[in-house]
Write a protein that binds this DNA or RNA. Structure first.
Lengths: 110, 110
DNA sequence: TATCATGCCTACCATTTCTAGGTATCGTCA
DNA sequence: TGACGATACCTAGAAATGGTAGGCATGATA
């Protein structure tokens, strides 16, 4: 019940994934690490959330995927932002900003 | 599909309701109006979201309700923040701030 | 050799918001 | 007077999404 770790709000995961990929091609497991690292360990995405999300996002055409071997010699599925995905990231960031602003307004209320 | 009106992210509604009530006792319909007004029309809560949410929140003991007649002579169910609810509002605001901060960190990334 | 980190996946569950309906009262205006 | 919109409450069901919990495989390391 009591959880100290902040769960993601629904709707934020896509944006985080797209943002992580905007910094360069990356495989699934790496996306989790990049998000954790960039957020100073404040955000941790579960595998059970990530992989289905990646699937959805790929279906929507926001990312493209290919299997490849990376430095360590291991195989992994690399995801890359598409042009549409980059547009989508902008859209989602704008929505997020709007929401943050709107909620700030409500909270400013005397 | 394409929607210009910003939908709420799941998890933000409770905080908004509690915040609206922190400004004073209010009935359901009035909560919707207060949130819309405070957010400069940016947020609009649907009735089908609000009433179930109020029920949940009341079950959790964050608000108390009573039927009363208000100025206009109409009956309405008035909700009031409890002490626990006020605590909860603080908690949720802190969580929200943490999330906003964490996401800002990710987005700052070069 | 055992275990941990890396790497992928799925099934199912929990939660929350919205859509779409229903009901009733009150005031206004043609 | 009668129609309509605003006010005021409610519910059922759909849709979406993140988590839990499981499984599987490989490479590095102790």
């Amino acid at each position: 019940m009591a959880k100290d770790k902040a769960d993601l709000l629904q709707g934020t995961l896509d944006m985080l994934i797209l943002k992580a990929l905007s910094l360069g091609e990356l495989h699934g497991y790496g996306i989790i690490q990049r998000i954790r690292q960039l957020s100073d360990e404040m955000l941790s995405v579960e595998q059970g959330s990530l992989y289905p999300a990646l699937y959805r996002i790929e279906q929507k055409g926001w990312v493209s995927a290919r299997w490849d071997v990376h430095d360590t010699g291991r195989e992994a599925k690399f995801y890359k932002l598409t042009r549409v995905g980059r547009k989508q990231l902008e859209t989602q960031e704008a929505s997020w900003d709007r929401l943050v602003l709107a909620i700030a307004k409500v909270r400013q209320a005397v």
